[in-house]
Simulated scan of single mutants.
Amino acid sequence: MRGLLASPLGLLIGLSLGALGGGGSILAVPALVYGAGENATAATTTSLLVVGVASLLGMGSHWKAGRVRLGPGLVFGVTGLGGSAIGTALNRHVDPDVLLLTFSVVMVIAAAGMWKRGGSPDCIDDENPETIDGPGPSLTSTGGPGSTGNVAVADPPRTERPTRIHLDARTIPKILLAGTIVGLMTGFFGVGGGFVIVPALVLTLGFTMPDAVGTSLVVIALNAAMALALRAGSVDIQWDDALPFVILAVIGTLLGRRLADRLNPVTLTRGFVGLLVLVAIYTAASSTVALT
């Protein structure tokens, strides 16, 4: 019953995944611990299920918008499988309260990274031609001898070229390092690591922000599936808590995709950062009291 009452938090998790490509997954663990009453170890496992399913199903709307680069996403995700295995192994040997205290630090780091990313030019949507092509489409005159007048016709908008992977001596180590860190965090904390994936795709592969958000869901789903497979048989998922969270997280992911099209991404990101900091403070205070 407690899990059902807390399940609306799953909507918030999905909203962040759909709109920002990350961050929402980092809220899943404290939501399940303090909202649904799960212990930290069980919450990280349930979180993987919630985040993985929401990312996989929510990816469809981004796919239709042409914002998912499946090939690069799979390559990036595969590099994190080793880190996911290590993180999962470490998770089983850490005190739950220590895990939550460490997790609060990660949330603060995530908040700082998302705040910095939220004010960067890369957050501007590349589907707005006024943003990437200048003041707007140019006009050409169709008037000529014998015409009744000049008719201004807009040049056809430029079509965005698909993002491609450029592997070189500098890019490969960045992909391997970023992918491994994301996998490690996924296995250890039960989070998708989208707040690491999105800037990594932008900085290492030159993705636009919208493409990075859509592609990050591929990586999150892959890493979550790997971490869940490694935990199979060792931790039981509390389905009474998981199912309502999953359903609302999927709905939230679909709504988040639409929300991202209507709201300023800078405002959206910074609003979430404030929430993330508050949750981090609460988690740190609660775990510190439990350890003393």
Rank of each mutant, 00 (worst) to 15 (best):
V106D: 11
S16W: 03
A31N: 09
I86V: 15
A31L: 07
G80A: 09
A40F: 01
T283F: 01
I251S: 11
Y282P: 04
S47V: 03
P244S: 02
P96M: 01
V68N: 06
M59W: 03
I132A: 10
I172V: 15
L5P: 11
R257Y: 07
R67M: 03
R92G: 09
R257W: 04
T41H: 13
L101V: 08
F207A: 09
V50I: 12
F189D: 06
P157D: 09
G149M: 09
G10Y: 01
L268E: 03
L255R: 02
G58A: 01
V289A: 15
I237M: 02
S84V: 13
V53A: 07
L177R: 07
W239F: 10
A285W: 13
L254H: 12
V289C: 00
P30V: 10
L275H: 12
L20G: 05
D168S: 15
T288C: 06
T292N: 14
L99R: 11
G3P: 10
T283R: 05
F207H: 09
A242S: 14
L268V: 05
T148M: 11
G82M: 10
L278K: 09
A290H: 12
G37I: 07
L248R: 06
L254M: 05
M226N: 13
T88R: 08
E127C: 08
Q238E: 14
V50M: 00
L268D: 10
L254V: 13
L5W: 07
A19R: 01
L101E: 11
L20T: 07
D261E: 14
K116R: 14
G24F: 04
L230Q: 15
L205P: 12
L263N: 04
V218S: 08
V198I: 10
N39Q: 00
